[in-house]
Simulated assay, not measured.
Amino acid sequence: MYRRQRHFYDATRKFYLLGRDGLVRGLKPPPGGSVLEIGCGTGRNLIRIARAYPQARCYGLDVSEEMLVTARQAIARAGLSGRITLAQADATNFEPRALFGREDFDRVVISYALSMIPPWRAALARALAALAAGGSLHIVDFGDQAGLPQVFRAALDRWLALFQVTPRPELGEALAALCREAGASGRTTRLFRGYAVLAIATKP
Rank of each mutant, 00 (worst) to 15 (best):
R51P: 10
G101I: 00
D144V: 01
S34Y: 02
Y2H: 03
L36K: 01
F8Y: 14
S34N: 02
R97N: 02
A122I: 00
G19P: 11
F163L: 13
F15C: 05
Q145I: 03
K203R: 15
T188H: 01
E103Q: 11
A201K: 09
V108P: 01
L23P: 10
C179W: 02
Q150T: 14
R121Q: 15
Y59F: 15
P149N: 01
K14M: 11
R57D: 12
D104Q: 12
D90S: 10
F94T: 03
G101W: 00
A174H: 07
A174C: 13
A78N: 13
V24C: 06
A56E: 01
L148A: 05
L128Q: 11
T42N: 10
I75A: 08
V69T: 15
P96H: 00
A89C: 07
H138S: 10
H7W: 14
L36V: 02
A130W: 11
G82N: 11
P149A: 06
E181M: 06
R180D: 12
L178N: 09
R20Y: 00
E95D: 15
V140F: 08
R57S: 13
A76C: 10
A56S: 07
A176S: 12
L86E: 07
V69N: 12
T202V: 10
A161M: 03
C179P: 10
V109A: 05
L162C: 07
A122L: 12
Y9M: 06
L36M: 02
R51S: 12
